[in-house]
Computed example of a mutant assay.
Amino acid sequence: MTRLLLLALLLCWVATSTRAAPCPQPLRIGFSDAASPPGLLGQGPDFPEPPGWEVVAVREALKRLGCQGELLRLPNRRLSASLAQGGVDIALLFGTTPERLRSLRFPLDAQGRPDVAWAPVFGHLALFGRGGEAPDPAWDGKLLPKGLRVGVLAGSVQDAIARGHGWAVEPISALDAGPTMLQARRFDLLLSTREVLTPEQRAELVEWAPGVAKLPYFAPASPQFAQRHPDWTRAFWRQLCQAVRRLEPDIRPVECGSAPATAWR
């Protein structure tokens, strides 16, 4: 009888421990209103069909969790502010900066650092010049000739990295405006993640080697949401990572739960 009772208690504990966290309501997940093909297609507040693999991955993660959410598109600055203030619960996709680590909630490892083992996306950050213009032969990944101006998305991790290197920065208000502004000679070089540029855009640009950094990108949560729903937030991060791995294995090159063999910033 005692053994049967212990077995029943064990089965009850297993069922409880594996039960999914309850779905938060309301649940608002934000995306930029600017296109970044092929991950996010279309412009403005609406999602086209197909919407891009970022949206598909979120929908798949929610389906596996048995939850529904409201998907929103907002201008980049408004999206960041709304996430920090709790108007949006989770948003895609953000690199980490010291300010964001203070104001948003990311998955963290045992040392309290952003946990790249569960980053859904890895990107290669590089400088791009106009087609037909050769890169500086002395370029070493950090030092630029004086006088060169670098276009960066305002408030982004690229912005923080460029300023950290002491480069002359020209802010860009919309992600997809960078290549056009570079061709119009608004600045001399564009600092961008390779993966957000379309094949057509890359064909008109020259990528400088070596690259600037390898960056993990996350879907951070608002502090308020993460505090109210810590278990669900962690479950969503894991499901999102696994969804991206299934849909875009080149973007998430190793199994979720494992860090890449090479060092990432």
Rank of each mutant, 00 (worst) to 15 (best):
T233G: 06
G87L: 11
S36M: 11
L10H: 08
V150G: 03
L5S: 15
E200V: 08
E195P: 01
S156D: 11
V212R: 00
R130V: 12
T96M: 06
P230E: 13
L7S: 13
G178P: 02
F106D: 02
V150P: 07
L247K: 02
A84G: 07
V157A: 12
R19F: 06
Q68R: 13
P37L: 12
E99R: 11
L41R: 03
P38E: 02
V152M: 01
G66I: 15
R234S: 12
R77M: 10
F236R: 03
G87P: 09
E255T: 09
A160C: 11
E49N: 11
V157M: 12
R100Q: 09
L27A: 10
D136E: 14
W139H: 12
I172Y: 00
P114M: 08
W118L: 03
P199G: 07
L197E: 00
Y217S: 06
P50G: 12
P37W: 03
A35V: 06
G166D: 15
A34C: 15
G86R: 05
F31A: 03
T193N: 09
F31W: 08
R228A: 14
Q242A: 11
A119L: 04
T198V: 13
Q158F: 04
F187P: 01
A119T: 05
C23M: 12
P22G: 14
T180P: 02
R64C: 12
G69R: 01
G129V: 09
T193D: 08
G155E: 06
G257C: 06
T96H: 05
Q43D: 15
I251E: 05
T2Q: 15
L6T: 15
